[in-house]
Design a binder for these strands. Structure first.
Lengths: 351, 351
DNA sequence: CTGAAAGCGCTTACAG
DNA sequence: CTGAAAGCGCTTACAG
């Protein structure tokens, strides 16, 4: 039932040499005669030998494997992030594994980290909400020695963190709305667990921008999005929420927690017969590829996702190589792409 | 630099018993006294022991791990597929790994399969275009014994295949357009490698439906989409293609290879000032969540993505348990969700 | 340049 | 009920 694989020993026996020799040939070790090496390499190729990492890793106590633990892998946001991670991992000789969590509960996260650690992966990146874990988990999983938390900066000091600058994103999104003359700026946010921490950071940027421009914050302009389903895309929930809010509150600017929910908000606003941006200007977050295709095209907070992924892996590898490093926090800078959802004349991009 | 993990031996030494005993306690083996068992379990818990799968797998020649190899993991299409896969894997005691390929070249695919096989995973699902591989790869990687090809039925007989029924999808999409009175039905397809085989199947469904309804196929109504970028979403490319075609050819129905490109097509049609569905009716494929939010909402080919993922894993596990099985092909049934892009009155769903 | 031998941390068949 | 010992397939320090 189980597949039989060819082993070094098989090859050694066929060639009448030792496994040490085969190993040296495969490793390109100089300490071997060219003839022997060629003979070995030829047979290895012929037989389609596939090395057993299980054995090798056990012996070396190292796997050269890292993992990315994430919820909602299908968010288009991750496309370029993962590309960056993959490239960086490859560059440093690591294999990148991806695990998608079904939910963000401490139980699921624990279960998964333990699964991965049993495989003795060298380190992991966690985009799931690591804060759902507690101190005993941090200790057991040695979070500090082998983990980079991804996507939020809350709270620092316990482990490495890398994140786009959520505070700044919230700040410049709001500032932009203020600069185009909006006074009643609402923020729409999600109640997704996954998003909670990022959200707070963005929200604080929003509050700060209002304050810096002497605009009072009104509780009723903070819209909490209805949950329409368990799905990753809450477009529908946002649509329903805004539809309702349009009847209840007055606002002329809307900062949406991300682009997907902005799509839903835009639908609701258009349906009501209001003009974007004339009546309500809308800003999203993440600058998804689709955002320049919708109508009106969406102004959004943007950042280099490929670089974010790449840097994350570099940071993890540094951590693995040097577990004694103090926990670090790295922010990826963000900017704003101005499109027609906030400025109706032809889109000038500013950063 | 490397993390030291606690081993069975450590625990055995602390307790003055053998590793065999620890092992039995952990496995819930009946052949052990309750006191010993409790003592062991307590210490294991306290120490936060994490089993070394590397050693265990090596000894057992089995990993209880399967992998999903895919390109463009961020396509929202995969959200539910992966959920289904994860649940099925869990149910049968397997861990699911996901590897995202940067491209679909034989080299990349080979490289990745070999990486995974070195880890001695028990089997894998490949959504990348496995047909880019050749017979020597099939042999080396024992594709037939441990792999399920995902998403296309072309060609069968060499390994297990599971796929939504692409032919039927193409057929009913086209049939629907015919039934609402369209005569000049175009098909828009992508040139993405990833899609090539699925595409052919859908295309053949399109051709068959035309034929069955005595409509002649016109070469100039087969639109090949421009590639706008390397990105997974070709919305922009589709937009450009249709914009151009609208000047060159006349058509009143459009079957799009998937929903994303349909979004681009719809933009182009609206921009030209034509009415959907009055002037041109549009059908997509995959029924992405976003498709009922756009305007007009998009008629699309749909199927149970969760079930597809779940069944795929079940099929793989059967294969692993019984490598001697003849290669099987399983089709997941597809239906059509009718929305406003083809029928303007309120959306009746039919399957 | 080549190889014998130990060891990574489990699991298992077997003896007591 | 408990444990000694072999072995999974590599890698490595060391001897020749």
């Amino acid at each position: 039932m189980r597949k039989k694989y060819i082993t070094l020993k098989d090859i050694a026996n066929m060639l009448g040499v030792s496994t040490t020799t085969i190993h040296k040939a495969l490793k390109g070790h100089p300490d071997i005669s060219p003839e022997t090496r060629d003979k070995v390499l030829k047979l290895v190729e012929e037989l389609g030998y596939i090395k057993n990492d299980t054995a090798s890793n056990l012996r070396r106590s190292q796997s050269n494997t890292i993992a990315f633990i994430v919820t909602g892998i299908s968010n288009p946001f991750y496309e370029l992030v993962i590309k960056g991670m993959t490239h960086a991992a490859e560059k440093y000789g690591y294999v990148l594994l991806i695990t998608n969590l079904i939910n963000n509960s401490a139980k699921t996260i624990r279960h998964n980290i333990e699964n991965l650690l049993r495989k003795r992966i060298d380190g992991f990146i966690i985009a799931a909400n690591i804060l759902n874990l507690d101190d005993s988990d941090y200790k057991k999983f040695r979070i500090r020695e082998s983990c980079v938390a991804f996507g939020t900066v809350f709270p620092s000091g316990k482990f490495d963190i890398i994140s786009p600058d959520n505070f700044k994103g919230g700040y410049i999104a709001t500032k932009h709305l203020i600069e185009i003359g909006r006074k009643k700026i609402a923020m729409l946010h999600s109640t997704n667990f996954e998003s909670e921490k990022k959200l707070k950071e963005r929200f604080q940027g929003y509050i700060k921008a209002l304050k810096d421009h002497s605009i009072e914050f009104h509780e009723e302009l903070l819209f909490v999005q209805k949950l329409s389903s368990e799905k990753a895309y809450d477009t529908q929930g946002a649509y329903l929420t805004i539809k309702e809010k349009l009847e209840e509150v007055e606002f002329d600017g809307l900062f949406c927690y991300n682009d997907e929910i902005a799509y839903g908000a835009i639908e609701a606003i258009k349906e009501k017969g209001l003009k974007i941006p004339k009546d309500i200007a809308v800003v999203g977050y993440d600058d998804l590829e689709f955002s320049h295709m919708i109508s009106p095209s969406l102004t959004s907070i943007t950042f280099d996702k490929y670089k974010l992924g790449y840097k994350t892996v570099e940071m993890l590898i540094e951590r693995i190589k040097n577990p004694e490093l103090e926990p670090r926090t790295e922010l990826i800078d963000v900017g704003i792409v101005v499109r027609k959802s906030t400025v109706s004349e032809e889109g000038k991009n500013e950063f």
